[in-house]
């Protein structure tokens, strides 16, 4: 349970961090909060030659409104996601999911950027990033680009971030007065990974679902947008028959694996239960 020996670098700019990675011959890992990486190093699932500590790079901090988007610096800690008033108002699914992310001591150190860069399919924040349709700001030595969440999650722990690149910020399109949202998850114990979780962002116009992003997590290799269920809801009133139709469509959207605790059929059942609850909540306030 001890990490293999490595050397330690503490850059103070993004460019310096990227150069340090390149100089390592790509045998490096970036560390921010380290709440997933340090156990992986201790278990020797990863054993880089160089650990690049990006926690002291001011460019990666800060939360600010810019032209209808909320830019959240990658180093924003989970506890700040819970306490920051701008996130609560403009990126509410991050705020609502934060109490369900691990335990208080982990939330004091873990970062939003780290969670989304890791892209654990059972984690809350990557899924909420997809539900809100964020854009991910990714830097390399040639510059910076923004990748929409719909194109960002590729496969298990695999994202649009190429080796050596750095996730620098999360840009959230701010919620509008016509938006409704809901988050919840089903877990065996508080703080455990969810069996299934979900975040929904709906644009309600004249009591009809104009647009909706319906995301589930813990159900596959990445967070999943349930597009058939979205289709079943778009243009409709959020009444019981629409909700039942969306629940029915979920079996076309999800193909969860069987595992020793949770057969696939049970996970789909629980996803339907959760979807019903969340859509019910949205309908109540719509």
């Amino acid at each position: 349970m001890k990490a293999r020996a490595f050397s330690y670098a503490r850059p103070t700019t993004v460019v310096e961090a990227l150069q340090t990675f390149a100089a390592s011959g790509d045998d490096a890992s970036y560390i921010a909060g380290g709440q997933s990486l340090v156990p992986a190093l201790a278990l020797r699932l990863q054993a880089p030659q160089v650990l690049i500590d990006i926690a002291h790079i001011p460019e990666l901090r800060g939360i600010a409104l810019q032209d209808g988007w909320l830019r959240i610096g990658a180093l924003t800690r989970h506890c700040e996601t819970l306490s920051d008033p701008l996130i609560a108002r403009h990126a509410p699914l991050f705020h609502d999911a934060a109490p369900y992310v691990a335990h208080p001591a982990i939330r004091n150190k873990g970062t939003l950027g780290g969670s989304i860069a890791l892209a654990d399919p059972a984690s809350e924040f990557p899924a909420m990033a997809l539900a809100m349709g964020v854009e991910l700001e990714i830097a390399n030595l040639s510059g910076s680009r923004r990748v929409p969440a719909d194109e960002y999650f590729i496969d298990l722990f695999q994202t649009a971030i190429e080796p050596g690149e750095l996730l620098t910020a999360i840009h959230v399109p701010v919620v509008q007065p016509s938006h409704r949202w809901a988050f919840d998850e089903l877990a065996r114990r508080r703080g455990d990974y969810a069996i299934v979780g979900s975040g929904i962002l709906a644009d309600m116009r004249d009591e009809l679902v104009a647009q909706i992003r319906l995301v589930l997590f813990g159900v596959g290799n990445t967070p999943v947008r349930a597009k058939r269920a979205e289709d079943a809801l778009r243009g409709r009133q959020l009444d019981q028959s629409a909700i039942v139709a969306a629940q029915a469509a979920l079996s076309d959207d999800l193909a969860p694996p069987d595992d020793e605790h949770t057969p696939a059929a049970m996970r789909i059942h629980l996803a339907r239960v959760l979807l019903g609850r969340l859509l019910g909540r949205i309908a109540e306030v719509a």
Binding site: A3, Y8, G34, Q35, V38, A42, D53, I106, N108, K109
Partner: peptide
């Protein structure tokens, strides 16, 4: 030694964190 049991909690700049989930170098 993997951030589950909570026996190693310390205060880092006033916030409770797991001392097993960070390297001493990070605390400099």
């Amino acid at each position: 030694e993997m951030g589950v049991c909570g026996a190693c909690l310390v205060l880092l700049d006033g916030r409770v964190v797991h001392s097993c989930l960070m390297f001493a170098a990070q605390a400099s």
